[in-house]
């Protein structure tokens, strides 16, 4: 006889599967994944007295401060413990040049956190990636300082004596168009330079190797899935292969297109933002492919050399649409509609 009195029936609402994973642990993983790229930029821009590090720390600090301040003033719960503001701050710094003034970071982080994130309701409610939106505003507001790319090996101007050595980014060289521009690029930078980060560019985007390391870590920890980055990078590769200028080795061209600019940084860390990308896997594939197409279009036809930032922001705006029309099939649902359609 079962003693029914002994059996406790616990009724609780779903979900019943518990996990230790929460926003904080996910954000911590993202921070860890960003560290290789950050360390590489500290090393590459080493003549700048760890400026890469201080800019990133300042940006993260600013974001946390804005978030805390806004929620305090609006009498909302304190959310800075979830570390999402830290991630936004790090990403914002990593898409800025090493020479970016600190006050500019403060303005950008205000826009990222207060306007893009908090005004729409805080974490999970923003429809644009905060870091990228902050960068887009900074580029629109202060085009000059935001596109002053230093050669990574340039020497630090001690007391302002030496001139800053600016270097064209690989994509700026490619912007000239045609096989000549590509030949000039291959002479300036080898594919290895791009892979290791010996190129001009924003803090985080230069080293493909370090970004791939971070991406691998995120994949292993299951923080991101492969769908968006693979669709994004794959689309850029495919389009570049087809669009390679005449007289250029198309595979070499693809290599340069993939490793130059912010593609890897954007595909791994920005496009995969949970709040601003579709929920379903097919939706994510479409999202990634859309990002890839827009990036290629801007690189080839636009007036900017690089289109990762804008392409992700544009696709962010389509996320609700992708979620609306690409829905998962309900498990166990009868295939009635299909049969009916076939019968007709």
């Amino acid at each position: 006889m079962t003693e029914y009195k002994e059996l406790k029936l616990i009724a609780s609402s779903s979900p019943h599967i518990r996990s230790d994973e929460d926003t904080r642990s996910i954000m911590l993983d993202v921070i860890i994944a960003l560290l290789p790229a950050l360390l590489m930029s500290v090393y590459r821009f080493g003549n700048w007295n760890f400026r890469a590090l201080t800019v990133t720390a300042f940006s993260a600090g600013c974001c946390v401060l804005w978030e805390w301040l806004y929620r305090k003033l609006m009498k909302k719960s304190n959310m800075i413990g979830d570390l999402s503001a830290v991630v936004t701050g790090m990403l914002l710094a990593l898409v800025c040049p090493v020479t970016v003034p600190y006050w500019m970071i403060a303005v950008g982080s205000f826009f990222s956190i207060v306007v893009v994130k908090q005004l729409y309701g805080g974490i999970g409610c923003n429809f644009l990636n905060p870091a990228l939106a902050g960068r887009a505003v900074l580029v629109a507001a202060y085009a000059g300082p935001m596109t002053r790319w230093l050669a990574p090996e340039a020497s630090y101007p001690v007391l302002g004596s030496a001139d800053l050595v600016t270097a064209a980014t690989p994509l700026a060289i490619l912007k000239e168009g045609g096989a000549d521009a590509f030949a000039a690029l291959t002479q300036t930078y080898t594919a290895g330079d791009l892979f290791l980060g010996r190129i001009g560019g924003s803090l985080g985007e230069t080293s493909a190797l370090m970004l791939l390391l971070g991406g691998a870590y995120l994949l292993v920890r299951k923080v991101i899935s492969w769908h968006i980055p693979a669709a994004y990078i794959g689309t850029v590769a495919l389009v570049s292969l087809l669009a390679a200028p005449a007289g250029v080795d198309p595979w070499q061209y693809v290599t340069y297109q993939l490793f130059a600019g912010g593609l890897l940084l954007g595909a791994i860390f920005m496009a995969t933002d949970y709040a601003t990308s579709p929920v379903t896997k097919p939706g994510q594939l479409v999202f990634g492919a859309g990002c890839g197409l827009l990036t290629c279009f801007i690189r080839h036809f636009g007036s900017y050399p690089e289109g990762v930032c804008y392409s992700i922001l544009i696709m962010n705006c389509t996320t609700w649409l992708l979620d609306k029309y690409i829905r998962p099939v309900i498990y166990g649902a009868p295939k009635k509609e299909k049969k009916e359609a076939a019968a007709k």
Binding site: V107, V137, A140, A141, Y142, A143, P145
Partner: peptide, 11 residues
Amino acid sequence: YTNMGLMTLPV
């Protein structure tokens, strides 16, 4: 003060 060119643009 660095002018915030953004503000005089349509955006």
